[in-house]
Write a protein that binds this DNA or RNA. Structure first.
Length: 255
DNA sequence: ACCGGAAAAG
DNA sequence: CTTTTCCGGT
């Protein structure tokens, strides 16, 4: 049930997650409520990343996706969560709760079409990176996500649905995260999933957590697999403190 | 279809 | 906490 790719790769949650676009630590840490519980946006990104089935596909804009088969998507989601009676009405309610969190918003006028706010998604789930942003350094995510100059929308649906480049932070050893964030416009180790076919994703997943060019001579020894407390800086901000940067600051020196 | 309140679940 | 469930309203 491990990703047998790399020795210093943390154990994944279940066999299923070996297909995951995120490493173990990217999920809800053990200390948080509902830990180890799949979140809906995880699930959506996963399906989108795999590009299987055509239940859900990327849309015409960056981050936009179209639910091609709402009820089937709900069914799949229900299976994952053990909710036998899941349907699109209820699933979409969960999606609507993302509006306030700015994780997602609706593309009005387009049926079953929503749009991810990747920057927010990552900021919420990796608030540590917000400090990079605040301290004047460019946040690699938002740069990459907002530029979008390289992204040309898939015009026809006949194309394999994985045409959306998924740029996700694949592995952030915390030492790398907190020492010098991107001093020389250096790239963070993204998982850049630009697969021509879904099969290639598994290859991405088996990349070592970080390659040698990114070591920075830091002590990148192992993943914090057991001691999730070390990752408590990764706490999701309270809704009332969503924009309280100082609050995050205060929470941050835990590492 | 889509929205968001309310409550309850886990 | 994040949904799940239900539902009245556009």
């Amino acid at each position: 049930m491990h990703c047998s790719c790399s020795s210093n790769m943390g154990p994944l949650i279940s066999p299923y997650w070996s297909q995951m676009l995120f490493p173990d630590w990217a999920y809800k840490p053990a200390w948080s409520q509902g830990s180890r519980q799949v979140q809906l946006w995880h699930f959506l990104l996963e399906l989108l990343g795999r590009g299987e089935g055509g239940v859900i596909t990327w849309g015409g804009e960056w981050g936009e996706f179209v639910i091609q088969d709402p009820e089937r998507l709900a069914k799949l989601w229900g299976e994952r969560k053990g909710k036998l009676h899941m349907n699109y009405d209820k699933l979409s309610r969960a999606l609507r709760y993302y509006y306030n969190k700015r994780i997602l918003h609706k593309t009005k006028g387009k049926r079953f079409t929503y749009k991810f706010n990747f920057s927010k998604l990552i900021l919420v789930n990796y608030p540590s990176l917000a400090s990079c942003h605040r301290s004047g350094n460019s946040l690699p995510f938002s740069r990459l996500f907002s530029e979008g100059s390289h992204y040309s929308p898939p015009v026809n649906r006949a194309q394999p649905s994985v045409s959306h480049p998924l740029l996700l932070p694949y592995c952030f050893p915390k030492s790398l995260l907190f020492s010098q964030p991107n001093p020389n416009q250096q790239q963070f180790p993204f998982l850049s999933a630009l697969p021509t076919s879904a099969a290639h994703i598994s290859e991405f997943l088996c990349l070592p957590p970080f390659n040698s060019s990114l070591h920075h001579g830091q002590n990148l020894t192992s993943w914090p697999t057991k001691h999730s407390a070390e990752w408590s800086f990764n706490r999701v901000p309270e809704p009332s403190q969503m924009d309280d940067r100082e609050g995050q600051e205060a929470r941050r020196q835990k590492m």
